[in-house]
């Protein structure tokens, strides 16, 4: 051993702990790389060996159909975005109102509280598509005059009813998460319960639940496609039309890619917000 070097130092100026950890890291990276490459190679080589691969490839990944239907589907997707764009604010407002109903403490407001509980129980307990069917087919069945027989109106209502129940629960959990000492501080200054909620509790609660609500709105963006069952020709329905026209399933794959192009970045962003919030809390 070289008498001049400090104990525990290895060559290259690393401490022996740093050298050990670098070795572990290199080893993990090597294993991850080998494992990923083998899986990808297996998929690329093995899947085409399946007897039906050529038929599947032609039916689902047909380049010609892809190119022909992509512009039309993108166009139809705009309708999804529009339905989403007018549903989302309605859901946010309704969800907040329902959350406040459930939090009403005054005895005179007990019916409101009861309504809030019943509302969230019912609409969280039903499949979205069922609510869309019942409202989307049921209400226009009353024979209302235009524009009150529009599936856009009643489809939107169905989405608002279901999603505001979830949003209400998320907001309520946010309200519960605000520490009692904040309410005490507000009360000690002479603020009314109403002002305490409006200026002290809600602004903090809503900020805390932004990431959770973002996940709900990503789910909403996907569920807009369910409205296709009651009429509107949005991307899912349009893909169905193209499927029949070309006798090919590629339009569905195109629709899936268009959805993912929007939902994956949105999901990543929501995760980023959530992690950021967790870091701030700890």
């Amino acid at each position: 051993m070289d008498g001049a070097s400090a104990p525990g130092r290895s060559a290259g100026g690393l401490t022996r702990r740093e050298a050990y950890e670098a070795g572990i890291r290199r080893r993990s990276n090597r294993i991850a790389l080998i494992s990923t490459v083998s899986v990808v190679i297996a998929v690329i080589f093995l899947v085409p060996l399946a007897p039906g691969w050529d038929a599947v490839k032609n039916a689902f990944f047909n380049g010609r159909v892809f190119a022909a239907t992509f512009p039309g589907l993108l166009d139809a997707f705009l309708l999804n975005v529009m339905i989403f764009a007018w549903s989302a604010p309605l859901i946010a407002v309704t969800g907040l109102a329902i959350a406040l109903c459930r939090d009403a403490r005054a005895p005179a407001l007990f019916p409101l509280r009861l309504f809030g509980i019943a509302y969230t129980d019912v609409f969280r307990g039903l499949p979205v598509v069922l609510v869309i069917y019942i409202i989307g087919f049921g209400v226009p069945g009353l024979g209302l005059p235009r524009p009150w027989n529009s599936p856009y109106i009643w489809g939107t209502l169905a989405l608002v009813l279901v999603y505001s129940a979830y949003v209400a629960e998320v907001i309520r959990s946010g309200i519960d998460s605000i520490h009692q000492s904040q309410r005490s501080a507000a009360a000690s200054l002479g603020l009314s319960d109403r002002d305490t909620m409006r200026f002290v509790v809600l602004p903090q609660a809503i900020r805390n639940v932004v990431p959770a609500n973002m996940n709900l709105f990503i789910a909403l963006q996907k569920d807009v496609a369910l409205l296709s069952f009651i009429g509107p020709v949005e991307i899912f329905r349009q893909a169905g039309v193209y499927k029949s026209l070309y006798a090919n399933f590629t339009p569905y794959v195109v629709a899936a890619i268009i959805f993912l192009a929007l939902t994956i970045p949105a999901t990543r962003y929501a995760d980023y917000l959530m992690n950021k919030q967790n870091r701030e809390r700890s």
Binding site: S181, Q182, S184, A185, A186, A187, S188, L189, G190, S192, F199, V200, P203, Q204, R207
Partner: peptide
């Protein structure tokens, strides 16, 4: 209690400022 609390101020150990 509100008119009374306006006459009696209190400061807490944990400050309890509104963080937003």
């Amino acid at each position: 209690p509100q008119p009374v609390r306006q006459k009696i101020g209190i400061v807490f150990q944990s400050y309890n400022l509104f963080p937003h």
